[in-house]
């Protein structure tokens, strides 16, 4: 495959600066509402704040790829005396937890860096984080060209994993007859 130049958008997360307000979750869900900002619901957010004040755990995590299978092992990390589950750092929308799934349909969610037309100056979670726990950075990398699945394909794939291809095809066929 050919090498291509790619702009990599990244968010630097400084856990020490997080005040735990969850504005990132709120504005993410509002931005991705349709129409934009017409509703908000942190349970639909593509960023989650793993928050356990008594143990001083403040960890914003972004939604990454959907995966059909959960991990075999669930390891634990201890950092500066604070215990984290391996899942705390994981970006996957996976069967082991509710995070990064639409609360009503269970469809997987993934951070899209608020890519939009016209483009946002930076992802909204970063804009709303006045404490600079989230800092937006861009860099260029050379990567192999690849075919990426669109949002609908990812969603369909998760439905196929859950119900089987036959059932999904039947349902789509039935729905198209109705309409």
């Amino acid at each position: 495959m050919a090498k291509v130049k790619k702009k990599v958008k990244s968010i630097k997360i400084d856990l020490d600066k997080c005040n735990g307000c969850r504005a990132c979750e709120m504005i993410c869900s509002a931005f991705h509402a349709n129409p934009k900002y017409s509703s908000n619901n942190p349970a639909r957010s593509r960023i989650r704040l793993i928050r356990d004040p008594i143990r001083d755990v403040y960890l914003p995590v972004y939604a990454g790829e959907y995966t059909a299978a959960e991990c075999m092992g669930r390891d634990k990390y201890v950092i500066d005396g604070k215990e984290y589950s391996e899942c705390d750092f994981c970006r996957a929308s996976c069967p082991s937890r509710d995070a990064f799934k639409e609360p009503d349909s269970g469809l997987p969610l993934k951070c899209d860096m608020c890519e939009d037309d016209p483009a946002q100056e930076k992802p909204l979670c970063v804009k709303w984080c006045l404490n600079d726990a989230l800092i937006y950075e861009e860099r260029e990398e050379e990567v192999e060209e690849e075919v990426k699945l669109g949002e609908m394909e990812v969603g369909l794939e998760s439905l196929v994993d859950k119900y089987g291809l036959q059932k999904v095809t039947d349902t789509v066929a039935r729905m198209s007859k109705k309409s």
């Binding site: 005040n19 735990g20 307000c21 969850r22 004040p53 143990r55 001083d56 404490n131």
Partner: peptide
């Protein structure tokens, strides 16, 4: 231990207080 806020607010009016030997509170 940390300055903290309420929901959807950039201020940091609260704090986590850990006194050695007794429970942590806010």
């Amino acid at each position: 231990t940390r300055l903290i806020s309420c929901y959807n607010c950039p201020m940091k009016c609260g704090a986590i207080i850990s006194v050695p030997g007794i429970s942590t509170y806010m």
